[in-house]
Every structure is written in C-alpha cells, then in structure tokens.
Simulated assay, not measured.
Amino acid sequence: MFGKRTQDINGVANEKWHELVETLGSTEAVRRASGAWDVLAGRPTPTRAWPVLRAAALGVAAGWVASEFYRRRQPQIDQTIEQTMDKVGNELRGAKHQLDERIAKAKATPGSPMDKAKAAVGRTNASNGMTESGYLG
C-alpha cells in the first residue's frame, strides 16, 4: 500500500526536479542542482578532484613565472634595492646631523631652558613676531 504511493511520489518529485534542472540553463547550475538532489536523496555526492588539480597546476605555473621573472631581473632588482638603501641611509645621516646641530645649538645658548629650547627649534621672539612681554607688538 505504501510502497506504490512512495514510488509514485518519488517519480513525480524526480520528474519535477529534472524539469527545474533543465530550465536552469547553465552547466554550473545543473551541476549544483544535481548535487543537491543527490544529498536530499541520501546518495553520496561525487567528488571532483579536477578543481583542486587545476588550482595546483595554476599555482605551480604562477610560481615558475615569478621565479623566471626574478631570475632574469635579479641584477635590476638588486640595483634598485641598493639605491633605495643608499638613499634611506643618506636621509638618516642627514637627519642625525641636523639633530646634532640643534642639540649643540641648544647647549651653546646661554639662559633658561626655554631659551635653549627656542634656540634648538630655531624660533626666537623676533622671528615669531612676539615681544619680550609675550604680546604681539
């Protein structure tokens, strides 16, 4: 009694499912719909190793291209790195020299710590428009 009815229901469900799959159009949608139907029916889904193999082959190819690019351009890359390191080194030496000059200028300036700080920064009352009293004048 229940066996015949279950087969009829399964047959109708399969028929409707296949109609849906045919209307989807794209092969990716059909593949996903078939996989979903397999899961709903309790069947194991087929494993596809091709996407993994394609990704691995693409990774190997990209690595080979990158290594060939580096191998052929290595002198240029090394020269660029060396020039950049020289430039950064020169800028650091210049910044240190400027800082040393400011410290020496501050030490050589007589007066209060505020006068020494102003000398180190390079600001004086005359240069910023202030009078000795602190007001613009």
Rank of each mutant, 00 (worst) to 15 (best):
A55T: 11
L24Q: 07
W50K: 11
M85T: 09
T45I: 04
P75D: 00
I77S: 00
G63M: 11
L53P: 00
Q74M: 07
E22N: 14
E101Q: 14
A41E: 11
A55W: 06
V60W: 07
R123N: 12
L99N: 06
W50H: 08
P110R: 02
R48D: 01
G11T: 12
Q83E: 06
T45F: 00
P46S: 03
W50V: 09
E22H: 08
R43L: 00
R123V: 15
A62W: 02
T27Y: 03
N90Q: 12
G11F: 11
K107L: 12
P44A: 01
A66V: 07
E101K: 13
E19Q: 14
G11Q: 15
A126S: 06
M130I: 11
K118M: 15
K118R: 15
V12P: 00
A55R: 11
Q7F: 14
L20R: 06
R102W: 03
E82N: 07
I81N: 05
T47F: 04
G89H: 12
I9N: 09
A29Q: 04
H97C: 09
R123Q: 13
L92P: 00
F2A: 10
Q74W: 03
A120W: 01
A117F: 14
V30E: 03
T80V: 08
Y70C: 07
R93H: 09
L58T: 10
T124R: 05
A117L: 15
Q7Y: 15
G129H: 04
D100Q: 06
L53C: 05
R123S: 09
S67R: 15
S67Q: 14
R71V: 10
K16S: 10
W50P: 00
R72F: 08
T6P: 04
T80R: 08
R93G: 02
P113E: 13
I77V: 08
A126L: 11
W64K: 14
K16T: 14
P46H: 00
A49C: 01
I9D: 07
E19Y: 09
A61N: 01
Q98V: 10
H97Y: 13
G11Y: 12
V65G: 07
E19N: 14
L58H: 02
R43P: 00
T109E: 06
V21Y: 00
R54V: 07
A95M: 13
A106F: 05
E101R: 14
P113S: 12
P110K: 08
R102I: 00
M1K: 02
T23N: 09
G137T: 09
G3S: 12
V52P: 01
A117C: 14
A117E: 10
R48L: 02
T109C: 05
M114D: 09
R93C: 06
D100V: 03
P110T: 12
I9P: 02
E132H: 13
L99F: 07
E22K: 14
E132N: 13
Q83G: 01
H97Q: 15
T45Q: 02
P75M: 01
E91R: 09
A119C: 06
K116Q: 13
K118V: 08
Q76S: 13
N14T: 14
W64S: 10
N128V: 09
S26G: 02
E15K: 14
P75W: 04
S67W: 15
A119G: 01
I9W: 12
A29S: 03
A55E: 12
D78C: 02
R32A: 00
